[in-house]
Amino acid sequence: MELKFTLNEVPRVVEISADTLLLDLLRSMKCYSVKRGCETGNCGLCTVFVDERPVLSCSTLAARVEGRSVVTLEGLREEAEEYGAYIADEGAEQCGFCNPGLMMNAIALYRENPEATDDEIKEYLAGNLCRCSGYEGQLRGIRSYLEFKKGEVRHE
């Protein structure tokens, strides 16, 4: 079947099967930032935005994004660089495999709640598993980024 949607702000028309998952479609369209870490919706590695909301692309039917806007980390390059630098400065990216999903959801968190407390950060990102970092370094990086953005707002 034919699917029309917007991928990283570019209108696309692709041929899919009825049961194609969004994750597989996106990787086939060279959005390699989107990763699969499990089959059960638990790891968060495949997080992308559909109409600006973070969703699990492993559990979203490709057919369901007809007419909608899908954004992957490939489409958020500048934000990823700015935000990611704070993770990198902690060494908290480690193996990096969970990073794209984490960055997507961390960006969503920032957009939704730029003043998030530690507990709110932990709860919002609870669906992003990381086996390397122990989360503390990621939390330090996210906290620093939010602080930096607060400063930026104050200066504007």
Binding site: G84, A88, E93, N99
Partner: peptide, 24 residues
């Protein structure tokens, strides 16, 4: 506390892992 050489590639989600760099 130096940044990892590959850090920015990783945090921005570049195609650097086995399944990303080999043909589909």
């Amino acid at each position: 506390p130096i940044r990892k050489l590959d850090a920015m590639q990783l945090v921005t989600g570049q195609a650097v892992y086995t399944d990303d760099v080999t043909p589909q």
